[in-house]
Amino acid sequence: MAKAFCSMKRKELEAFLQDVDGFDKPKVLLEQYPTTPHIAACMLHTVASTFDDLAGKSVADLGVGCGILAIGAEMLGASYVLGIDIDEDALSVCANNLEEFEMTNVDLLKANVRHLARCSELASRLQGKFDTVVMNPPFGTKHNQGIDVDFLQTGLKLSSNALYSLHKSSTREHILKKAQSWGVEATVLAELRYNLDNTLKFHKKKSVDIDVDFIRLVHTQDSLHRQKDMLS
């Protein structure tokens, strides 16, 4: 069914994604902020229409959560999507969503993204197997300092080409500096406003707006060489 949707407009995609179920009880420790249909549609439409990085591609989604990016990626023509998450409850919601949407190109894996980055043999098996990585990682601001950067590093290992991610705008300089030190090209594609309803208990206000950057990282000859060297 995916093929029919390849030229789908952003608004149509967003309308479809409205029906993706979210977290039953978001977990504070895992920073389970839902990716809204609007943000998911903005990201994926850009990935597909501006960069042609979805149709016929192999795609990984790190911290897949309820699967909105994975489902959207398949709708826009991805041939194979692997969604990885540490949380059983999120994966179970995601599996139900995949069934509802009859998405058969998406596979799920329960694993710790931080462990995946560490081990060289595992990394060499996964390395470069994906054309494109999309993710909405934990911001790494609560109890998980540095997890946003770990997700980026793992994503870069998995990807042979481009990685798309969301990060708090307040961390932009830090992220761009990291990208530079890895030898990858980083571009801030858009600034988005993330409206968090009062879904997580520690939020005192009714809803909070967070500015996030939609970032694209692309491998260069230099960064690919460095990854090879690290493994040998």
Binding site: Y80, L82, D107, L109, H115, R118, C119, E121, L122, R125
Partner: peptide
């Protein structure tokens, strides 16, 4: 689990396992 996914997994993340594939 699709077999394409299986093709990318190893258990050498376990302490003491060298290849696991």
């Amino acid at each position: 689990m699709k077999l394409i996914t299986h093709n990318m997994l190893t258990s050498n993340i376990i302490k003491g396992v060298t290849k696991g594939f």
